[in-house]
Nucleic acid binder design. Structure first.
Length: 876
RNA sequence: GGGCGUGUAGCUCAGUUGGUUCAGAGCAUCUGGUUUACACCCAGAAGGUCAGGGGUUCGAAUCCCUUCGCGCCCACCA
């Protein structure tokens, strides 16, 4: 059966991946070659391969495989991120299923469960990457909580602390009541939610009057400690300095004034809840207002909530607003759309909360990061448009809250020896030593030390990744970091430009005084055909492994890359992968054709074969130059498209069709050159489709393991002969012209046609006659002074060609067609002449452009002439 | 609210400093084709007022203004 001979990726891919691994081709060690390093954006250790990973890692693999072929010492370091909050959430969930509540077990016990989880599931995503063909150096797998990386993290914490850049402070932070930890600003998604704006009366003390306030969060009324109006608000000025009573709570609070209050919004009067809102906090601080925190860490109300104590904030909102209404304090409710910050991980609304946390002062660190990207281009962003976002963030950078109230992660290396005094140290022993010295109490014991309960933000380890994977933090002078750093390319999504990319740059300059990478390729998001984000809840995210199974890794890789310019979102459809798979099949079959040829030493090389092969050599070089240009601009999909067309159109449709013979016999010269050309195609395609190319590479010749494609040599792009390309284009147009006539007049391909062209025009590529004869199925193009009677003509450039067409000519139709053509060119000529007779044009336009216009005029005149001649022939 | 970006064929996008015959590619579509690499294919064709309007210029998809549409980032008003 034919179908069984089609390309079957599944077993082949497994076979070749194993082969590469067995021969250690992915492994890199320091040597005298130039390094080309990529560190993987470490996926979450809990993660599973999704479309975003596929895209992103395919691009990295393309870059690293190409570098390897170009003779660089290519090193792609894989690894995973401990992802503290995400992983901890999963482990908590798992324990819950087993009937274990996190709060009932010790930190130590929890960590044991978490590590078990990591050991069991942590390598899943890396195994999936192998299926995709990722040529990572698997001897170098790193995990952000490995011993060496953890020590690096602590070392940096200690160092920054010594530099005075880490401090502990009370700030309004984002609190996730479900995970019960703080979040950084970047870990919050704002979404619009329809809620209600409650208008509430606050009676004035000693008067029969009241203030109106508008709030979306009546449950925070228990924390109200002031009311505030704008000092310039004439309507409300008279209330300033008076006291109001918080309804139901019955607390007397002062009415103060501050410019921050917007008189236009709501009632113009703001209730101040300093412990539960950013603005209120600022105003509260400024006016020295009492802080009342009425919420528990889990989002329920505390004793300040009176009878609502223990109830969730949203339950209280409902119940308490009802109570206000019943007591006559609620004036009205309005529907109101406001933006609510949701925790990225747990999806619950974030609660602003006053909290004592660790921070990094960022301002003193950012200068080199601004310079590198925005001034001297030592780090390039692709696409460039992200520079703006990057600039904006860095120039307005805020201090980084790095403490998280979690267990899974790097525990903060701070040890308290009394309420307010602490030391920072790598180990307990070191801490003890320092604490004894600092306190003067030399009898202090380990038990007297209390380590900070919090762990560090995940990104506090990720920002060191390009250095820590080579152990460049602990040992700044080690050979590996000196060799592999700075890395070459970073491929990641724009969503973590601040989280991660910018911070890596900051850390790179702070700790090595050097950029962590040269180029940052920011991929777009993978969306579905309706432009929706891929998500589990929508169920629109295809299963990555199933895709690979259906279309082959090569097919999926190509499918993803064909339509994904840097920074552009990718609208994923399976048909893209189908296109990729079809391409693999195409090359597979081209190989089958070539392998099926029978070399006959007696045969001479036919002219048409030489024509085609000569042309393809030039075409290959010209295309390769284009491809290199695309790569240099990180236009990966354009590079792929160029290769796709080179192989499919140029090699298969033109070269193979040219050399094909009915008896499958072929001369040695042609055969050798043909396989050579296919091999060059395989080399440049290999980064995109590693499996099928490696397989064919070995099919074409019996190669030793040292000759594997993956470590072979990338072709240099040489000069190319424009003349050869130009002549071939003319020949190709002639062939297409004949084919077009055949189609139009319904002339079968098997009928050989007599082909003429008018003498007097010496541009016809005589040397390609054999090729034309073969591919257009005509006689050898014959130069004549005048065409014979019954012909159909067409023009290539300004050369007129004709095939004999006895009995096929509809004179009227031909005339009509020619007249249409004539009208078009006459109009065109008019335009050109008008331009040329415009003095201003001739004066102002560069000579080159004017000459071009003159040539245009001449060409058009020539064309008109031939058309008129054709017409006059028809008149006879 | 502040900032950035974007609108080109049915879809996804190229289109360098304004200047070749510049309006392009891939996919999808239409027409014809199958004993001999591939129907996961071959050959041929059709598709656009470059979002609308105005301006600068000898010349505008490209530069400027404006209207409309879309997207992203930042800050957030209780």
């Amino acid at each position: 059966m034919k179908s069984s001979e089609a390309y079957q990726p599944e077993q082949l891919e497994a076979k070749w991946y194993k082969y590469w691994m067995e021969h250690n081709y992915f492994h890199s060690e320091v040597d005298e070659r130039k390094p080309y390093t990529i560190v993987i954006p470490p996926p979450n250790v809990t993660g599973e391969l999704h479309m975003g990973h596929m895209l992103n890692n395919t691009i990295q693999d393309v870059l690293i495989r190409r570098a390897r072929l170009q003779g660089y010492n290519a090193c792609w370091v894989p690894g995973t991120d401990h992802a503290s909050i995400a992983t901890e959430a999963k482990v908590v969930e798992k324990l819950k299923h087993e009937g274990i509540d996190k709060s009932t077990i010790s930190r130590q016990a929890f960590m044991q469960h978490a590590w078990e989880w990591k050991e069991t599931y942590g390598n899943k995503i890396l195994e999936q990457l192998k299926k995709l063909g990722a040529s990572c150096d698997w001897d170098r797998v790193k995990f952000t909580m490995d011993q060496d990386l953890s020590e690096s993290v602590l070392k940096v914490f200690i160092d920054l602390h010594e530099k005075g850049l880490i401090y502990k402070g009370t700030r309004m932070v984002n609190w996730d009541p479900k995970a019960q930890t703080t979040l950084s600003d970047e870990e919050i998604d704002y979404t619009e939610r329809s809620g209600q704006l409650y208008y509430i009366k606050y009676p004035i003390v000693g008067e029969n009057a009241f203030m109106q306030i508008a709030t979306t969060r009546p449950e925070t009324i228990f924390g109200d400690t002031a009311l505030c109006v704008n000092p310039d608000d004439e309507r409300l000025q008279s209330f300033i300095g008076k006291k109001a009573i918080v309804p139901i709570v019955n607390r007397e609070v002062e009415i103060i004034a501050d410019e921050q209050v917007n008189p236009q919004f709501g009632t113009g009067c703001l209730k101040i809840t300093p412990a539960h809102a950013e603005t209120d906090y600022v105003i509260g601080k400024k006016h020295d207002i009492e802080f009342i925190d009425c919420l528990n860490d889990d989002g329920t109300l505390n004793h300040y909530g009176q009878k609502y104590e223990g109830k969730d904030r949203f339950v209280v909102r409902k119940e308490f607003s009802k109570a206000l209404e019943e007591a006559g304090f609620l004036l009205k409710k309005e529907n109101y759309i406001n933006k609510v910050g949701l925790s990225e991980r747990t999806k619950v609304p974030v609660e602003p909360k006053l909290s004592n946390q660790w921070f990094v002062s960022m301002k003193p660190l950012v200068e080199p990061a601004i310079k590198a990207v925005l001034q001297d281009d030592s780090i390039k962003l692709f696409p460039e448009k992200f520079k703006n976002t990057y600039r904006h963030w860095l120039e307005n950078i805020k201090d980084w809250n790095i403490s998280r109230q979690l267990w899974w992660g790097h525990r903060i290396p701070v040890y308290y020896y009394d309420q307010n005094s602490y030391v920072v140290a790598m180990t307990e022993d070191e801490a003890l030593e320092k604490a004894r010295e600092k306190s003067g109490n030399h009898d202090m014991q380990l038990d007297d030390l209390q380590q900070d309960e919090d762990v560090l933000d995940t990104w506090f380890s990720s920002w060191l990744w390009p250095m820590s994977v080579f152990d460049g933090i602990r040992y700044p002078d080690n050979k590996e970091i000196a060799y592999y750093y700075p890395t070459k390319d970073l491929v990641t999504g724009p969503d973590i430009l601040f989280f991660w990319v910018a911070r890596m740059i900051i850390a790179g300059y702070e700790y090595r005084d050097e950029r962590p990478f040269e180029n940052v390729y920011l991929t777009g998001l993978v969306r579905d055909a309706q432009r929706r984000k891929m998500s589990k809840s929508l169920g629109n995210s295809p299963n990555a492994l199933a895709l690979i199974k259906n279309f082959g890794a090569d097919g999926v890789r190509v499918g993803l890359l064909l339509s994904s310019a840097a920074g552009n979102d990718l609208l994923f459809e399976e048909s893209l992968c189908q296109q990729g798979k079809n391409f693999a099949n195409k090359i597979w079959n081209a190989t089958k054709l070539i392998k099926g040829l029978i070399v006959d030493d007696q045969l001479e090389q036919p002219d048409y074969a030489e024509n085609a092969l000569n042309w393809f050599d030039q075409q290959f070089n010209a295309t390769l130059a284009q491809i290199e240009d695309h790569y240099s601009k990180y236009r990966i999909s354009d590079a792929l498209m160029s290769i796709y067309k080179l192989i499919w159109d140029d090699f298969c449709s033109w070269v193979l069709e040219s050399i094909k013979s009915t008896d499958q016999k072929i001369d040695k010269t042609t055969y050798d050159r043909l396989t050579g050309q296919l091999e060059k195609c395989l080399l440049i395609l290999h980064p995109f489709m590693p499996f099928v190319t490696e397989d064919i590479w070995h099919q074409l010749q019996n190669r030793t393991k040292e000759e594997a494609l993956i470590i072979s040599q990338y072709p240099e792009h040489g000069e190319f002969d424009g003349q050869i390309l130009q002549s071939f284009n003319v020949a190709r147009e002639i062939i297409k012209g004949v084919r077009h006539l055949r189609k139009e007049k319904n002339i079968g391909f098997k009928k050989q046609l007599k082909l003429y062209y008018l003498t007097g025009n010496n541009k016809h590529p005589n040397q390609l006659n054999a090729l034309i004869e073969k591919l257009a199925a005509t006689t050898v193009p014959k130069a004549v002074d005048e065409f014979p009677g019954n012909i159909l003509s067409f023009r290539v450039d300004s050369i007129e060609y004709a095939v004999e067409a006895e009995g096929l000519i509809d004179v009227e139709a031909e005339k009509q067609k020619l007249n249409e053509e004539l009208r078009y060119y006459q109009g065109f000529l008019k335009g050109v002449e008008k331009k040329l007779s415009n003095d201003k044009f001739v004066q102002n336009a560069p000579d080159k452009v004017v000459d071009m216009e003159k040539k245009k005029k001449q060409d058009t005149l020539d064309k008109i002439k031939t058309i008129e001649e054709s017409l006059s022939r028809l008149e006879v």
